[in-house]
């Protein structure tokens, strides 16, 4: 088989996005905030539209800033509804993201003449067009696909973020009260994590779409969580799954002539289901004497 540079680039980009999402997803899952991630990935839509409208381009800093602000707004709104209005958490998530998404669609329809965006592209982008979309400098130097660079930059930021704030993230995830006593601003750490999630959503929505960002945030960490109880191996396993998903997803999609991002998620779902069947509780006649389980270590 000859080396296919397009395939390599697509798989590389998929892997980069999947690892960034997976790392953030691990912490979201440990904080029982996976659905907040889902909410953010929908809620950034108005920010993207406004950023697009202001700058006139889908690839501008304004789009990223707009989406980032909306992501933070969504987080604050969920928290506000829960704490100030005392709405239960699941309902405040549901109300927040549906409202923001609805506003986003209305904005798209309002600016329809000016903004070349539609909800389909936001919901399920297309990674296959990535090799066409090149980043060419003014001097004419071809630096390769733009989205791959974006994904790489994203992973770099996520990596640095987690490396620098590892202790804070771990403490606030496992014991918020203790971390406040230690003087760690739990709310600030939380907001920082949410901003990273919104940034990741924006920088990947063009290629994998909002729903698939949710999948990459939720599924690999959940799968890894079924196999391990230590945080370090959780992160490593998530990264390994991310690579596996990208490779298998690409070739299966290629073989079936279908959506690559969708196939990545389907593969992830397959791994998840298999893990749940293997590691889930078995009927009593199936299992021997139960082993003693250890609590989750750090």
């Amino acid at each position: 088989m000859t080396f296919d540079s397009n395939a390599f680039l697509i798989i590389l980009t998929g892997t980069l996005i999947a690892i960034s999402c997976g790392f953030l997803g691990v912490f979201m899952m440990l904080r029982k905030m996976s659905m907040t991630g889902d909410a953010i990935s929908h809620a950034v839509l108005p920010g993207i539209v406004i950023g697009y409208f202001v700058s006139g381009s889908q690839r501008s800093l304004e789009v990223i800033i707009g989406a980032g602000l909306l992501g933070i707004l969504a987080t604050l709104m969920i928290e506000g509804l829960r704490k100030k209005a005392k709405v239960q958490l699941d309902a405040s998530i549901g109300i927040t993201f549906t409202l923001l998404f609805a506003i986003g669609i209305i904005l798209i329809n309002m600016f329809a003449y000016k903004v070349d965006l539609d909800q389909e592209c936001v919901l399920y982008g297309e990674i296959a067009y990535l090799p066409i979309d090149l980043w060419i400098t003014k001097s004419g130097l071809n630096l390769g696909p733009r989205i791959t660079w974006l994904a790489g930059l994203n992973l770099l930021f996520v990596g640095v973020f987690i490396y620098l704030l590892f202790k804070e993230l771990v403490l606030t995830s496992f014991d918020e009260n203790f971390s406040s006593v230690m003087g760690i601003p739990a709310k600030g750490v939380n907001l920082a994590l949410m901003s990273m999630v919104s940034y990741t959503t924006v920088s990947s929505f063009e290629s994998v779409g909002a729903i698939l960002v949710v999948a990459l945030l939720a599924v690999p960490p959940a799968t890894a969580f079924l196999w391990t109880k230590s945080l370090n191996s959780l992160l490593k396993l998530t990264a390994a799954l991310a690579i596996l998903i990208s490779v298998l997803g690409y070739y299966l999609a290629f073989w079936m002539d279908s959506s690559i991002a969708g196939m990545m998620v389907t593969v992830a779902g397959g791994f998840f289901l298999a893990s749940a069947l293997i590691k889930g509780k078995k009927p009593s006649w199936f299992k021997g004497t139960p082993k003693e389980s250890k609590p989750l270590g750090i």
């Binding site: 899952m29 996976s34 659905m35 889902d38 729903i211 959940a222 079924l226 991002a261 969708g262």
Partner: peptide, 26 residues
Amino acid sequence: NTKLSEDSIIATILSVFFGFGIVMLT
């Protein structure tokens, strides 16, 4: 049957089914 929390389960099911749906749709 698993130790996963409810929100994690819902996010997983939601996105996997939707992803699979997109594969079929395309």
